[in-house]
């Protein structure tokens, strides 16, 4: 089984989706990466919420993100905190900075994590895990 197949069959927790965040996960399921933009201060916001953490405006609007990001740091999980991930361990996790500004945590789909460097160019790659599509990231060799 290749990695994408293995990931699909993992028995691991999915997101605890709320009425506020539902559009984000629906977007991911249909191949769109949505973040929020503040109607008052113009700043971009991730994860989705009702209030802008910068200015407290409650006018946050959904906007498509480019899917481009840079690596801030990473680690390689050998012993997962949840046993369901063991089948794909060791696997790399990263904190990335989206092109639009906010940071997020994600799993990195890379062949040799030991070659990862801070600032590496990444691009979103939607992956189905346990019946939920999730925004993982892979190398974006067009932007090195």
């Amino acid at each position: 089984m290749n990695l994408i197949e293995k990931l699909r069959h993992l028995d691991v927790p999915g997101p605890t989706i709320t009425s506020v965040t539902k559009p984000f996960w629906e977007g991911v399921a249909s191949g769109e990466f949505l973040i929020q933009k503040c109607g008052e201060c113009d700043k971009n916001v991730f994860y989705p919420r009702t209030h802008c953490p910068h200015c407290w405006s409650n006018r946050l609007e959904w906007t498509p993100a480019s899917g481009k990001a840079r690596l801030k740091t990473y680690s390689v999980v050998h012993h997962p905190g949840h046993p369901g991930w063991q089948d794909v361990a060791p696997y790399p996790l990263g904190i990335i900075e989206l092109e639009e500004g906010p940071s997020m945590l994600t799993q990195l789909l890379v062949d040799s994590p030991e070659d990862l460097k801070m600032g590496d160019a990444l691009h979103v790659k939607f992956v189905e895990v346990n019946e939920i599509w999730r925004p993982f990231f892979e190398r974006d060799s067009s932007r090195d």
Binding site: V12, P15, V77, L105
Partner: peptide, 10 residues
């Protein structure tokens, strides 16, 4: 729980 754990960060 919603935005870190589903990526394997438990």
């Amino acid at each position: 729980r919603e935005f870190d754990v589903p990526f394997g960060a438990s």
